[in-house]
Structures are given as C-alpha cells and as structure tokens.
C-alpha cells in the first residue's frame, strides 16, 4: 500500500470529461499533498493520447494508461476488470471517480470487487485530521442533510464526486511532464457480457454540456408547456448559454432528460444560473449549489428558489424573458 491518490479521468472519444480534470486540479492535488503521495491519473479507452495529455497538463504526476479496442465504449465488465487489475498491482490509498452515469456504474462494481468502502456523489472532500482518512461529504435524503463519511480500515478508500462541484482551478500547463505507465491489460470478447446494439443521441443539433457550461438558462414547470421553452432558448442564445431544465419539465415531456439539473440530473457549477419558472425543490437546489450567481424568475413570491437567488424577480416569465433577451442583445451590440 502506498500513499498515492488516483483520479479516474473518464475518456469519451479521446477527449477527457471535465470532471476528471476538475478532480485532478482541485481536490486531487490538495489531498495528495496532505497524504504525502503522488497524484496519479487513470485513463482507459481505445485511443487515449488527448486525455493523457490533458491529465498531465492538469497536474497528474503519473498516468496509468490501459488502451485497447475492447475499451472503445464503456462496458461494466471490461472497465471494472482493467481498473481492478491496476489497483491490485499499484495499491493506491485513495481513488476519486467522477459521478457521471458511467462513473456511478463503475464505482460500486470496483469497490465491491476490492471489498472496500465507496462514498457516492461527494460534494466536499477533506482529510480527517484525527485519523488521516479522507473525509467524504455528500448530500443525502434528497439534499435535506449532509453526511461526512470515513472509510477507516479498508483500502483503497473510494468516492465518486459530482461534476461541476469543483471548478477547474489551474490553467492547463502543456509543458509539464509526467511519467506515463502503459499497462497491458486486455479482456477477451466473451468476458464482456453486454453488447451495445445502438446509441441514440438526443438533442444532437445542440450542445448540452451542462457540466462545463459558463451560463445556464433553465426552465421549469412555470413555463406551462413545451413550446414555451422557446423563451428560454432565445435568452440562452443571446447569452451563449446552455439550456437546462428542472425534473418537472422533463417529467412533463417538454424537454429531454439530457437537460435535467438536480439530484437525479446533472450537477452544475456555472458562473451564472438563470432559473425560469423553477420553484426550487431541494432536489433541484442540490444540483446548482456550485453556481456562482443565481437568478430566479418566478411568479410565486413564496418559491424556495428565491431564498438562494442572488437576483430575484417576482413576475410573469413571458414578460420578463423577452424584454431581458432584447435588452441583452442591445447591450451586447453596444460593446
């Protein structure tokens, strides 16, 4: 057992998912220093060069790479096997995994195979001073309560961390060098017991990168019907923002789940979050805790979203949004 801290940098088509880089540059570096070990990245894919480069530029001292055609798409069986073999060989003390859809599929499988503890969906990471263990803090009970969890007697201690909670701290340093360790781990096709028949991309004509978005304009139940997302899209376009939504709007069938923000959707950390007709159930608020500034527009003066908004308008969305969009276009043109 060594003192190293590993960050899984998830790769999608030879591009790193943001959360891996967020974890390297922020909490990964901080925790690795306190633990007195190295900060290492793990990259698993069919082509890895760009993701490995990004991991180094965001602070990895070492990168463990598993490459092969069998890792083209994420599969539980192949990825768990590869990751587990790496852990058994190099024995890190802590592992951080982004709580993406695939990260949350991989994490429990890995922790269970290693017979160790896993803390899901963390929003805060520290080292417990008394014991030196990682103190994993996460929301539970739909965000009503926070719990700090330790894994004192088992190693590695593993946690998944919500995307967007930690901001990308450092600028990438492309001059940095790191040790790249290629591991020849392969699985035969029979070991992969799931077969992807088809992938269906939703909202293919628009980019829905909520987790990396600087500005998000989100719509909720207050929009009343699917067509009224038009007002949200107009404002988003004027701001160069990404469109988000509450669960209520997704459940109503007004917009695809890929736009959903909150406990069962994406966790976001934009500079500006504009909530339009979203009342602000605690499950939604959990997802926007990382936003720097929050704007709330709602006709109900009692809506809980106003308790956390930096700018509030109690009023009619359909008056506020078009006027605001027009004014933003005018002010931008002046610049």
């Amino acid at each position: 057992m060594n003192k190293d801290l590993w960050v899984y940098v998830e790769d999608a088509q030879d591009r790193p998912k943001n959360v891996g880089l967020e974890l390297l540059s922020g909490p990964g570096r901080r925790l690795a220093e306190i633990q007195g070990g190295q900060l290492c990245a793990v990259v698993i894919s069919d082509t890895t060069s760009e993701t490995v480069k990004a991991a180094v530029s965001y602070g990895a001292d070492k990168v463990y790479v598993v490459e092969g055609p069998e890792y083209k798409d994420y599969t539980t069986d192949a990825y768990t096997h590869a990751f587990c073999e790496l852990v058994k060989k190099y024995q890190p003390t802590s592992i951080l995994i982004g709580a993406t859809v695939d990260g949350r599929d991989l994490g429990p499988r890995l922790a269970c195979r290693l017979k160790t503890g896993l803390t899901a969906d963390c929003t805060k990471l520290d080292i417990d001073e008394a014991s030196g263990n990682v103190a994993w803090t996460r929301p539970a009970f739909g965000g009503n309560i926070m719990a700090t969890i330790l894994c004192p007697d088992h190693r590695p201690q593993i946690g998944t961390v919500r995307p967007g909670v930690f901001k990308l701290k450092a600028e990438p340093d492309f001059v940095r060098q790191a040790e790249i360790i290629w591991e020849d781990i392969h699985v035969v096709p029979e070991q992969i017991r799931t077969k992807i028949l088809q992938t269906i991309r939703e909202a293919a004509d628009e980019m829905v990168d909520l987790e990396g978005a600087e500005i998000i304009v989100a719509g909720g139940r207050g929009l009343g019907k699917a067509e009224n997302f038009f007002y949200v899209r107009e404002l988003a376009e004027a701001l160069g923002a990404t469109v988000g939504s509450s669960r209520a709007a997704v459940d109503a069938g007004w917009i695809s789940h890929v736009h959903q923000v909150g406990q069962t959707g994406k966790t976001v950390g934009p500079k500006l979050y504009i909530a339009c007709g979203i009342s602000g159930a605690v499950q939604h608020l959990v997802g926007i805790g990382g936003a720097d500034k929050i704007v709330a527009i709602n006709k109900d003066p009692e809506a809980p979203i106003f308790n956390i908004a930096d700018y509030s308008i109690v009023g009619d969305l359909f008056q506020v949004l078009p006027a605001m969009t027009a004014e933003i276009k005018r002010l931008k043109n002046q610049k």
């Binding site: 503890g117 896993l118 539970a140 309560i145 926070m146 719990a147 969890i149």
Partner: peptide
C-alpha cells in the same frame, strides 16, 4: 467499511 462521522444540515 464506511462509517458516518457526522451529519449536518446544509448551509442555506
């Protein structure tokens, strides 16, 4: 393996 060290209500 995991132990709850403490729980608290989130700061509003």
């Amino acid at each position: 393996p995991t132990k709850v060290k403490k729980t608290f209500t989130p700061q509003v």
